[in-house]
Design a protein around this nucleic acid. Structure first.
Lengths: 152, 152
DNA sequence: GTACTTGCAAATAGTTTGCTGTCGA
DNA sequence: TCGACAGCAAACTATTTGCAAGTAC
């Protein structure tokens, strides 16, 4: 992925374009999100950002993350296994969620995409948003109690 | 679908089998759910059941639908467009959710099923639960502002 | 009779909002 | 300077829990 630095610059540029102010809180939150790929929870971000900006509260996290979603830098995912998470991968994709280790794996399938389109088409609908999550167990986990993905 | 009456009997039988007591509240809630196919919200059930059992509270609704889920009579669905809903169709299926009219349409696709399995298989996972929702707009709605599914 | 249930209120979790002092442009 | 923002607390929504009184079996 792009560097954290370049992402940060893009955020600053976009905020500026929209007349939004560049504050140390917003920068810290953007950096926390882009410093690591993946699906960040609000709590995770809160803890990470606290180190740099001690008095930053949850409200600021929520408000800033909302801005990042609006600007298209992150997407919001509500999984069944816990609180809302924010994903830095802007590409539309589906998820495998391991019920054992909580690991979230992204996947895309052009065939599934095509089938989704044809289902929607058959009902004269146009797809605006997809939510496709497979909640899974590791087969190894089931056989010998050891989850092969835990430490990935 | 089966009659409300027969469903009610099945619920009573299953509760009895599990040593759960048959109370007028539980019966009323089961009847409210099975009196109409579809995706019931807690509020909807609350209002419907209030007519028969006036002092019945939300806690009882929540506790009872949990039992019905545990017994496999209904499934729980958390859509993005609002609160949790409880679905009387026990068959595993996917959803089209119209962002205009809120209508929820069920669908199944064996091809998609197969593709899901092969994705999971490729990661050595076993699928425990699927969540597949397509949030859509009516094409007519987009063209002339009229939603063709609103009154279905 | 006794354990399971209910109803109510209070607790909880996650998120949003209102207000006031602060700060970026 | 001055309107937007941050911090804090309080509000809010959806759901769960504790407990005393009620009821099925």
């Amino acid at each position: 992925m792009e560097t954290t630095e370049s992402k940060r610059q893009q955020v600053i540029e976009e905020f500026r374009k929209r007349g939004l102010r560049i504050t140390k809180q917003r920068i810290a939150i953007a950096e926390a999100i882009f410093s690591e790929d993946g699906h960040h929870s609000i709590d995770e971000l809160y803890r990470k950002v606290q180190e740099k900006v001690p008095h930053l509260g949850y409200a600021t996290i929520y408000r800033t993350v909302r801005l990042l979603v609006d600007c298209g830098f992150v997407t919001e995912q509500r999984f069944e296994t816990g609180a809302t998470r924010f994903d830095t991968d802007p590409r539309d994709h589906d998820h495998l969620i391991c019920l054992q280790c909580g690991r979230i794996i992204e996947f895309t399938s052009p065939e599934i995409r095509r089938l989704q389109e044809s289902v929607a088409e058959a009902h004269r609908f146009r797809i605006m948003k997809r939510k496709h999550e497979l909640y899974v167990n590791c087969q190894e986990m089931l056989k010998n109690g050891e989850c092969p993905h835990r430490d990935l």
